[in-house]
């Protein structure tokens, strides 16, 4: 079976090995190229900050950045990310000092915390584009990420606080 033709994927015997870049580090995997990259990141690379919530891009717990854009890892195949740069929650800062992370702590945003990686990645995508987002901008960027604990108002406050502190 031919899966894909791409410089990053080379045939080695019967194994297809993909090289993908996550948080500026290159990883290799011989997983089925149709595997959602969520499971590769979590189970093969051990970066478990990115969460599974729905599997159909309805909840956003799995939000990562692909070439800087917030994307849902649960519906993104391994094959589609070859050669692209992935950033996960573990990669947005080296010392948990991203302005959003600091604002999340300052506002005590998380309750169970499960969705918060996705929330922060979506918010980081927003602040990268809009330094001073309006409420409507925040709604548009964040509406895809469900928080079952209901931390939405604190998320909004934390995004505004991070924006005020020039956060990106």
């Amino acid at each position: 079976m031919i899966y894909i033709s791409c410089p990053e994927i080379v045939l080695q015997e019967v194994r297809i090995v993909a090289k993908i870049t996550v948080n500026k580090k290159t990883y290799e995997t011989d997983a089925d190229p149709s595997t959602p990259v969520l499971w590769i990141i979590r189970d093969e690379f051990g970066l478990t900050g990115t969460k599974f919530g729905c599997g159909i891009a309805q909840c956003g717990s799995c939000t990562i950045h692909i070439d800087g854009e917030p994307r849902r890892a649960c519906i993104t195949t391994l094959a589609s990310v070859a050669g692209k740069e992935i950033t996960t929650i573990e990669g947005i800062s080296t010392a948990s000092d991203h302005p959003l992370q600091k604002a999340w702590i300052e506002n005590d945003v998380p309750q169970c915390g499960y969705c918060q990686s996705g929330q922060i990645m979506a918010a980081a995508g927003l602040l990268a584009k809009k330094k001073d987002p309006t409420d409507a901008d925040i709604d548009a960027a964040m509406n895809g990420i469900i928080c079952r604990c209901g931390t939405y108002n604190r998320i909004r406050a934390a995004i505004k606080q991070a924006a005020m502190q020039g956060g990106k």
Binding site: G49, T50, T88, E90, S93, P110, G113
Partner: peptide, 21 residues
């Protein structure tokens, strides 16, 4: 008082059941 479990919940290191290996 600020919650003790927030720092780990904003950087992906918090370990939920699903994260066990």
């Amino acid at each position: 008082v600020k919650r003790l479990d927030t720092p780990e919940k904003v950087n992906g290191t918090a370990e939920f059941g699903i994260d066990v290996n």
